[in-house]
Simulated scan of single mutants.
Amino acid sequence: MRILLDEDKCVGAGQCVLAAGEVFDQRDEDGIVVLLDGHPDEARRGEVETAAQLCPGQAIEVRTD
């Protein structure tokens, strides 16, 4: 699994951090998403996919390649 982020789409809502705090964080200065783990373990798939679905800016893409 690979995660791609589009920082330009991020609105800083923080839903990704709430859903998958081991994978995502936010910058202190503006709340924009920070990727902590671009290739998380398969065991985190559910929470990562939830984070992508909850993202109001649709800034998170989960790939299986």
Rank of each mutant, 00 (worst) to 15 (best):
M1P: 03
V48S: 00
C16W: 14
E7I: 05
I60Q: 05
I3V: 15
A59R: 11
E49K: 14
M1G: 07
D25Q: 13
D41A: 13
D6M: 08
T50D: 15
E49P: 01
R44D: 03
L5N: 12
A59M: 03
V11F: 02
D30M: 08
E29L: 10
E61P: 00
P40G: 04
C55S: 03
C16F: 10
C10K: 08
G12M: 11
C16Y: 07
L5W: 08
V23M: 02
H39P: 00
L36A: 01
Q58W: 10
V62C: 05
L4Q: 15
R27L: 09
P40C: 01
L5S: 02
K9A: 14
E47Y: 09
M1I: 10
R63L: 15
A19V: 04
D28V: 01
A19S: 14
D28N: 07
K9C: 01
R2K: 15
L35S: 09
D41C: 01
L4W: 07
V17I: 12
C55W: 12
G57A: 11
D37G: 00
E42K: 13
V23S: 02
L5Q: 06
A59V: 06
I32H: 08
H39Y: 12
E61H: 03
A19R: 05
E49D: 07
Q15S: 10
Q53K: 12
V34W: 06
P56Y: 10
D65W: 07
R63Q: 14
V23W: 00
V17F: 11
Q53I: 07
Q26H: 07
I3Y: 03
D28P: 12
